[in-house]
Amino acid sequence: MFEAKLIQGAILKKILDAIKDLVNEASWDCSSQGMSLQAMDTSHVSLVAVQMKADGFDKYRCDRSVTLGMNLSSLSKILKCAGNDDTITLKAPDDGDKITLVFEAKNESETSEYEVKLMNLDSEYLGIPDTPYSVNVKMPSHKFQRICRDLQQIGDAVTISCAKDSIRFAAKGDLGSGTVNLCQTASADKPEDSVSISMQEPIIQSFALKYLNHFAKATPLSPQVSLSLSPDVPLVVEYSITDDDGSDFGYIRYYLAPKIDE
């Protein structure tokens, strides 16, 4: 039996909003550690990895590991039926062919119950090496979202370069070009507004903005986003997931293969 209860159901709604347009079908791996998911987009250009730790849930029971394969747009449609303040409980019996979602409104006697069909998916898991990166940047997630949205008006790709204590996002296209330069902030009264840059070596790398704009759909999950870059390897865009108390619940990590000059 698998059962996971989340008082702040809105977190699960936000997670689905952040992945459903990138990945159509995926499997949740549920173990005593928590729920996790790894999937590539259909073009195999990007990869998304989600982790929700067991102790972040308000109740979590997983007698034996289960894989819950599902259509994410179906799950997202069902989660839209939950209110933002609802408690969400996921339930799956061992060897069942569906998952049950129970939504409970706060201070009300209303509960609703939905079922989503499970699918057997041939999931291909990629091993992601845990290596240090040349550049790590932490910045406000809304700023990253804004930069990616603005630069997509100019071109299809952004060139990210980092030198000393600044990071530069540049795009060019038929209409002209655009550049956004961000410098490290000195000290922050509000940590969520700060930009911090740690650089081992300068870097310049290009990425498709279409995917970065998909990743930015995770913005409501976290006030800060972390970008990690090294020469000729995928970019990592990470949003940590915290609950209202600020406790660490897990993360969404997106990996994006670079564009390489011919």
Binding site: M40, E124, A257, D261
Partner: peptide, 14 residues
């Protein structure tokens, strides 16, 4: 002109 690479050329299947 730049080429889009694929993510599965960087990370091997487990």
């Amino acid at each position: 002109k730049s080429n889009q690479t694929r993510i599965d050329t960087f990370f091997a299947a487990k």
